[in-house]
């Protein structure tokens, strides 16, 4: 059974829980075990739905004993974040072994403009920290704009939809460090098309737990008409390499 590295997981109770879909660390580990997901990059619901820094600290506390789980901090522009200098932020990143960050620009009411977030993006670019953004929580013009100013950031497009190839392809063609998390990118023959055009290094497995069943994306990868070694990269190796390359 192939090993997986999940790049898109949330733990903690969110505000809206219609099907009781939320995970604590124990339940997450149980889910991961069922699908042979060996590692996961995790953020906390409180960071999204309550207070970014409060949730980030909660996350660190909750996963401190889990070596298979990696910290994703939800960040805000430093003007409105409790850690407001880059020296302090770097210290926190090192102390807490933060391996990725996530932005929710629309939800958290800030712009992905250079004046707002330019310095922070330069900081992340330098450290090779993967930045996770859903275009559905900002806009494609914003994504294009930050890449024009920061062409080397490691940008992971998450929670995509099947209607977005026209936005994704030009970015993959032009920029070296763009990655597509697959849980929402379920366009017809999407994996095969991305592989044919851009190779297998730009795709990452993500489950979008707790909102989606990991078996959905896993089946998509397992049944893709691509070489088995490329499936290994999509399932695990691409994500692992990205995490290893973070330079704190």
């Amino acid at each position: 059974m192939r090993e997986y590295f999940d790049f898109n997981v949330m733990i903690g109770k969110p505000t809206i829980v219609p099907l009781n879909n939320w995970l604590d660390v124990d339940r997450l580990n149980e889910e991961m075990g069922g699908f042979n997901i060996k590692k996961a990059l995790v953020y906390h619901s409180y960071s999204r739905d309550y207070d970014a820094h409060f949730g980030n600290e909660k996350l660190i506390e909750e996963i401190k004993d889990c070596l298979n789980l990696y910290v994703t901090w939800v960040l805000l522009p430093l003007d409105i974040f409790p850690i407001d200098t880059f020296d302090e932020l770097l210290e926190e990143f090192r102390k807490n072994n933060i391996k990725a960050v996530r932005f929710f620009p629309d939800l958290h009411n800030f712009l992905l403009e250079e004046e707002v977030i330019g310095d922070l993006l330069s900081f992340l670019e330098e450290l090779k920290v993967p930045i996770l953004i859903s275009p559905n929580n900002t806009g494609w013009k914003d994504i294009y704009s930050i890449l024009r100013n920061h062409p080397n950031i490691r940008l992971v497009l998450i929670d995509l939809t099947y209607r977005q190839s026209s936005y994704i392809f030009p970015l993959l063609k032009r920029y070296e460090n763009i990655y597509v998390e697959l849980s929402g990118y379920i366009t017809f023959l999407g994996i095969e098309t991305l592989y044919k055009r851009f190779g297998g290094e730009k795709m990452l497995f993500g489950s979008n737990l707790p909102y989606k069943n990991p078996g959905s994306t896993i089946y998509y990868i397992e049944k893709a008409n691509i070489p088995e070694e490329v499936k290994d990269c999509i399932a695990y190796k691409n994500a692992d390499r990205l995490i290893q390359e973070v330079d704190l």
């Binding site: 069943n213 990991p214 078996g215 959905s216 089946y219």
Partner: peptide
């Protein structure tokens, strides 16, 4: 909905339920 969307994720979803 295939080919409007890919059929495989839906199959995985049911099989893993």
């Amino acid at each position: 909905d295939f080919p409007f969307i890919d059929p495989r994720p839906s199959i995985g979803w049911v099989k893993s339920s």
